[in-house]
């Protein structure tokens, strides 16, 4: 097991290296003048005319051969300097670190109901195969699966913001933002709900929840579909196994067999899919955050990608690769807990 975990971790540097090469190659397709923008501390530096632009290209070595530029760039990254993000107007690492708690808060709040709903709906659909609960759940999931996130999100805004004015966009209201940025309010984690509770400020807590509600509903509905499908298929396969028939034959009530004996084993394939899903969500819920103007990693990544802010894009890519590898590892480590047979092999 440990051996396996180590091999997985060894993949990380290879993936990261290839990724950095890929992004750097994309970056090199721009002209030196265009790339200069990434180094310029402010737009004024680029207004100095041809002469000063040439001087700066010289200064930063933007005309050097590919491998020299790559070496210099990767050297900076290895020493912990991810570069300067023109979009955030701060170092990439600072920007990523300050936005991470916001995305984590959103993703965790959406993922937990998503998982519970998938287990509940998926097992029900499997138990009531081809009867009305199964049909309703199948239609519900296939609709959710086909619903474009941006259409569903805009619909949420239309109903819960424009019409009802319950769930406004953004992360906090104006007044709450003022409180949170004041010196009396201690930012322990950067996640608004947790910080509000730790500071004992229930008004802020309520305001943060009000802003989280709509994106959480959107993410849950859009993501629950694929997980429910997996759960349903897996439940169907488990219910067909011999041990289920044996348990029924020895006189155990149907409910106990279905919910205790079968559902547990049916969870296994769900663990893999759920891990992947969580990794993808952590890697930026790009559209959801953009629609609800929720300042997290996804919205930031979308902005940097559209602006071709390469240092930030690479920083985000590195972050995503690390999350993906770690999530896969976690799933692999959780697996023996769910299925003791794995450990003995």
């Amino acid at each position: 097991m440990l051996n396996y975990a180590l091999r997985r971790l060894m993949m990380l540097p290879i993936v990261l290296f290839a990724l950095s090469l890929m992004i750097f190659a994309l970056q090199m397709s721009l002209s030196p003048t265009q790339r200069l923008a990434a180094y310029a501390p402010s737009p004024d530096y680029l207004k100095g005319g041809q002469e000063s632009i040439r001087r700066m290209i010289e200064q930063y070595g933007l005309n050097d051969p590919f491998y020299i530029q790559y070496g210099r760039w990767i050297g900076g990254i290895l020493t912990g300097n991810l570069g300067w993000s023109e979009t955030a107007r701060q170092p990439v690492s600072t920007a990523l670190m300050s936005l991470f708690p916001a995305t984590l808060e959103l993703v965790v709040l959406a993922f937990v109901p998503c998982l519970l709903l998938a287990v509940f709906l998926g097992s029900r659909a499997g138990i009531y195969l081809n009867r009305w609960p199964d049909h309703v759940i199948r239609i519900f999931t296939i609709l959710g699966w086909s619903f474009p996130v941006y259409v569903f999100g805009l619909l949420m805004l239309l109903i819960f913001y424009s019409a009802l004015d319950w769930f406004p966009p953004g992360r906090l209201s104006q007044w709450a933002q003022t409180v949170v940025s004041s010196s009396d309010f201690v930012r322990y984690t950067g996640a608004n709900t947790i910080d509000a509770l730790l500071n004992g400020n229930l008004a802020i807590f309520g305001d943060a929840l009000r802003h989280l509600a709509a994106p959480v509903i959107t993410l849950t509905y859009v993501n629950v579909a694929s997980m429910t499908r997996v759960m349903r298929t897996s439940m169907l396969e488990t219910l067909r196994q011999d041990y289920v028939r044996t348990a029924r034959a020895k006189g155990l009530p149907r409910r106990v067999v279905e919910l205790r004996h079968a559902r547990r084993n049916a969870l296994l394939p769900l663990a893999t899919i759920a891990g992947m899903e969580l990794a993808v969500m952590m890697g930026g819920v790009v559209i959801t955050e953009t629609i609800f103007d929720y300042a997290g990693l996804g919205q930031f990544a979308a902005k940097t990608a559209a602006n071709l802010d390469f240092p930030a894009v690479l920083g985000f890519g590195l972050y995503f690769a690390v999350v993906l590898v770690i999530m896969n590892l976690v799933v692999d480590l959780i697996y023996p807990l769910l299925d003791p047979r794995v450990k003995t092999q």
Partner: peptide, 18 residues
Amino acid sequence: DVFMAVPFLIAAMVLTAL
């Protein structure tokens, strides 16, 4: 594997923007 580890939408955005 490497291509799988790339955030799909963001990577597609960068390439389209380029």
